[in-house]
Amino acid sequence: MRDSEVTHFLVSISGQIEFASFPAGVFDEEVYVQYEFVWGPDWAVKSGLTSGVSQMARPGSNPETVVFNMPVELVFSSTNVSGWPQIILTVRAKNMMSGDSLRGYALALTPPTAGVRQITSPLLRPRAATMLGEWLAWVTGRYPELADPKMLASGKDNYLLRTESYGNITMSLSMISKDLRKLGYDNQPPAYKESS
């Protein structure tokens, strides 16, 4: 294919959702994570799973972290960098007493530069709007949830949602692109710049 005929670039995202960490320890019997990718209008998925659910995990010798090691692998094709894929993670817990309840949502941008990136995103969870709701959440251990977590990725119409943050989740994702530079894009940091 000649250079002038190139109209699309391909982006391969692969890696894993490594672990969730809660600084005060995990008091749930089982924790699991759901992931979902969100992308802009010019993007299309070529291969891979755009959403998934991990295993039921519990912490081991380190009481603060729950390891998932959930693999993620996707190939996107696009004509435009705008709308770069984001990943939305929902961490939930399952207990005998309170059943299935939310532990938090996390949003992360998949790396737009080639190479591996370790991403730590905070877990956010909506707060109850009223005192009674807050008390109920405390008693039952179940927190308010978003009807559609994808609204977090759009960054609009949140109507000043009240949230609190507890814990974070770590992913390591690597990105490989094809024809991105042929289309005139430059996403690589210069050689003199440290990666940090």
């Binding site: 960054g155 949602l161 943050s165």
Partner: peptide
């Protein structure tokens, strides 16, 4: 061309 040139975040505690 695209994207929101202004916006508001959620409120965080």
């Amino acid at each position: 061309v695209s994207g929101l040139p202004e916006g508001q975040t959620v409120s965080g505690q």
